[in-house]
Amino acid sequence: MFNKKKPNLETIQNIKNYFIKKYEIPESTILSIAELNCHEPDCPPTETVITSRSIDGTTKNWKIHKPIEEISEKDVKDLENNNH
């Protein structure tokens, strides 16, 4: 039940770096990454949600319909700026 493999820390850091590069995210902003599984109809089986929390309290979310381990720099580059 709880023996899900944890994502590689290097992979997570790479994804954060892709976002920092694309969106020019400052060091003071916290980026968090969560992989979610959905069991609802018409829902992707796994999606990754990336959240930025700025020092001023604003947040932005992006969703990529893939597990963390499958996300590439291209996936981040292909996100639209209004996908948050």
Rank of each mutant, 00 (worst) to 15 (best):
P7V: 02
P7T: 11
P7H: 05
P7C: 09
N8M: 07
N8H: 14
L9T: 05
L9N: 11
E10C: 04
E10G: 14
E10D: 15
T11Q: 15
T11P: 00
T11K: 15
T11F: 00
I12Y: 00
I12F: 00
I12W: 00
I12T: 03
I12G: 00
Q13F: 03
Q13P: 01
N14S: 15
N14Q: 14
N14V: 04
I15M: 02
I15G: 01
K16Q: 10
K16L: 06
K16G: 04
K16F: 01
N17H: 05
N17M: 03
Y18E: 14
Y18G: 01
Y18F: 13
Y18N: 02
F19L: 09
F19M: 11
I20S: 02
I20R: 04
I20H: 01
I20L: 07
K22W: 04
K22D: 03
K22P: 02
K22E: 02
K22R: 13
Y23R: 11
Y23A: 07
Y23H: 12
Y23E: 05
Y23T: 07
E24V: 13
E24M: 10
I25G: 01
I25R: 00
I25V: 14
I25W: 05
P26Q: 08
P26V: 13
P26D: 15
P26L: 08
E27V: 05
E27G: 07
E27Y: 09
E27M: 09
E27F: 10
E27K: 10
E27P: 05
S28I: 08
S28A: 15
S28F: 07
T29I: 08
T29M: 09
I30E: 09
L31R: 02
L31T: 02
L31Q: 01
L31I: 15
L31V: 08
L31F: 05
S32H: 04
S32M: 06
S32W: 03
S32I: 10
S32Y: 09
I33L: 09
I33A: 10
I33P: 01
I33H: 02
I33T: 14
A34I: 13
A34F: 04
A34Q: 13
E35N: 06
E35D: 15
E35V: 08
L36N: 13
N37I: 04
N37V: 04
N37H: 08
N37Q: 12
C38Y: 13
C38V: 08
C38N: 13
H39N: 14
E40S: 13
E40T: 07
E40A: 09
P41M: 06
P41N: 11
P41F: 13
P41V: 06
C43V: 13
C43L: 15
C43N: 15
C43Q: 15
C43E: 14
C43T: 10
P44F: 01
P44N: 02
P44D: 03
P44E: 01
P44M: 00
P44G: 04
P44V: 01
P44Q: 03
P45E: 14
